[in-house]
Design a protein around this nucleic acid. Structure first.
Lengths: 124, 124
DNA sequence: TCGAACCCTCACATTGATGTGAAGGTCAAG
DNA sequence: CTTGACCTTCACATCAATGTGAGGGTTCGA
């Protein structure tokens, strides 16, 4: 598929798909005329990227995380330098912390909403 | 305490404490000379804010979420307009989605790290 | 062969969260 | 009374993600 279709199917502006490519997050083959072509696997990948960006991770980090996400258990350790592993550990912990924070706050919001709803339904 | 102490204790640049105040996320009393003064409760609040910002929420949304976080179950519904409730529901769901995304990816990273570590310890 | 609907690159603008520093007031200690 | 460590406001700079549009090529159907 070309960029327009990927854009529609992922709800992502073309501009951003090109940006993600520039940042090394996705790769696209090219048709002889220079048009980008994507296969189905890019769909998931783009959704991943968007989700992570939305969760506050910068592209620089996402780039390091993506290779860990190969479906097949064929984990490949191409250039797993110690610093890179340290970065990943760090990032794993930061993600855990984010999850904790989000969960706590999400629950508080949910509780609040439930309370309001209760008040509205039986205003004493 | 004054801004310097709050800054140190929360690890937050003064600049940002002023920014959060400007955005309506925290309030500060003033000494007769104009200096900001904070009480202990601002410590938690600032950490909340930082955590949520780091998790990708914009100040505009954080501002709406914070009032849901009153420790005492005295939930107050000062101006719980329907649109605001809708916003909160929306945001609750977005947070849930973020949590899902982060968890999935965090687990993948953790798995990857475990696998690498295993390889390193017993290189077959 | 023309127009619509794609695609390309390039470049400048905007937005939100920050960094940085200038110009100046306050206050306690030497 | 001065110095240093605070504080104030204001303003301009930066960075990453994103918006927008110009200027131009490709492809396809009427």
């Amino acid at each position: 598929m070309r960029i327009g279709e990927l854009s529609e199917r992922t709800g992502t502006p073309r501009r951003l798909l090109r940006y993600y490519e520039e940042q090394g997050l996705i790769v696209a083959d090219r048709l002889p005329n220079g048009y980008r072509v994507y296969d189905e696997s890019n769909l998931d990948r783009v959704m991943q990227i968007r989700g992570l960006l939305d969760a506050g991770l910068p592209t620089r980090i996402i780039k390091q995380i993506l290779p860990c996400l190969n479906k097949p258990r064929i984990i490949h350790f191409p250039d797993a330098t110690p610093e890179m592993l340290a970065t990943l550990e760090d990032e794993r912990d930061r993600m855990t912390e984010r999850i904790r924070c989000l969960t706590r706050n999400r629950d508080a919001v949910a509780e609040y909403l439930d309370a309001v709803r209760e008040k509205l339904e039986s205003p004493v």
